[in-house]
């Protein structure tokens, strides 16, 4: 087990001193291998706060996060001697907004920044930059461009490339597909899936898109008002009666299947994962 949350609470101190409980008693375990997790929940439910605990960017106000055996907790002593940087290399976190991290003159140097901070040589970092820029679907010509003149989607890809170049064991992405066109979104999701398949590494994606959850995830976490309210298989989530009370809805395919069985009495034994199967079932039903 790579990451373990034990009764984690997190309280934001607002500017005017009013406390805000962003995480409430979170218990959670994430394995190093074999999981493709999606984290969903309405805006402001604490998703970003939760993932920032996973590479020790913020420390729990109470409770404990254990990352690769290293216990992270709120200590009164300021001089805790734990080295956090190795953890941040192992667990790569891509932030929600690329503007927060791009700062170098060229895209290439920005991608090299992360690996070089973790002691990778310049040549090796250059090599990785060239690889990952193609992985995220940009041509190598982009390496020479300034990161500030890129479009929102391109910036997003560069910021993802910057983390991929660190070659983390676990990849955590905060809304990696927001602001991308449908084709770009699917390409990136396929990329994450292929990384996951190739090395069997765990990938965690925050998303607002139920289709992503349904199509890709092996496990889904649901946040609601600072609580972790669901942790299990996507298929069980979408069968849950509480779904709408968490302000979530069903993926298009499940919606379609439900409507079909409701209106046309075409029933499904278990929900199919692609449209072709639905079509086939309808055809079969039509001939009956």
């Amino acid at each position: 087990m790579a990451i373990k949350f034990k009764r984690v609470n997190y309280i934001y101190q607002g500017m005017d001193g009013t406390p805000f409980r962003a995480l409430k008693d979170i218990n959670l375990t994430i394995e190093e291998k074999g999981e493709f997790i999606t984290l969903i929940g309405e805006t402001g439910s604490g998703k970003s706060t939760l993932v920032q605990h996973m590479n020790a960017l913020i420390k729990p106000t109470s409770g404990q996060v254990e990352i690769y055996g290293i216990k992270i907790e709120e200590t009164k002593k300021k001089s805790s001697k734990i080295k956090l940087n190795p953890l941040r290399q192992k667990i790569g976190l891509v932030f929600q907004f690329p503007d927060y991290q791009l700062f170098e003159e060229t895209v290439e140097r920005d991608i090299m920044f992360g690996p070089m901070n973790f002691g990778i040589s310049k040549e090796e970092a250059k090599k990785r930059a060239k690889e990952v820029i193609q992985l995220v679907g940009l041509e190598t010509g982009y390496l020479e461009r300034s990161p500030f003149n890129l479009s929102g989607g391109e910036k997003k890809r560069v910021s993802i490339a910057g983390i991929l170049a660190m070659e983390p064991d676990i990849l955590v992405l905060d809304e990696p597909t927001s602001g991308l066109d449908p084709k770009g979104r699917d390409e990136l999701l396929e990329l994450f899936l292929s990384i996951h398949n190739k090395l069997n590494n765990t990938v965690l994606i925050i998303t607002h898109d139920m289709n992503t959850v349904y199509q890709y995830a092996s496990r889904v976490l649901v946040m609601n008002d600072g609580n972790l309210v669901f942790d299990g298989k996507p298929i069980d989530l979408f069968a849950s009666p509480k779904l709408s009370s968490w302000n979530l809805d069903k993926p298009d395919l499940i919606d379609l299947c439900d409507k079909l069985s409701e209106r046309l009495n075409i029933t499904f034994e278990n929900y199919p994962k692609d449209l072709e199967k639905v079509v086939a079932r309808i055809k079969a039903g039509y001939h009956e």
């Binding site: 941040r88 991290q101 992360g114 983390i163």
Partner: peptide, 17 residues
């Protein structure tokens, strides 16, 4: 101030201590 804080977190996750 809030923004500065977020940027520091984003850079910290790329190994800036």
């Amino acid at each position: 101030l809030d923004e500065a804080n977020k940027i520091m977190l984003a850079q910290a996750s790329r190994g800036v201590d």
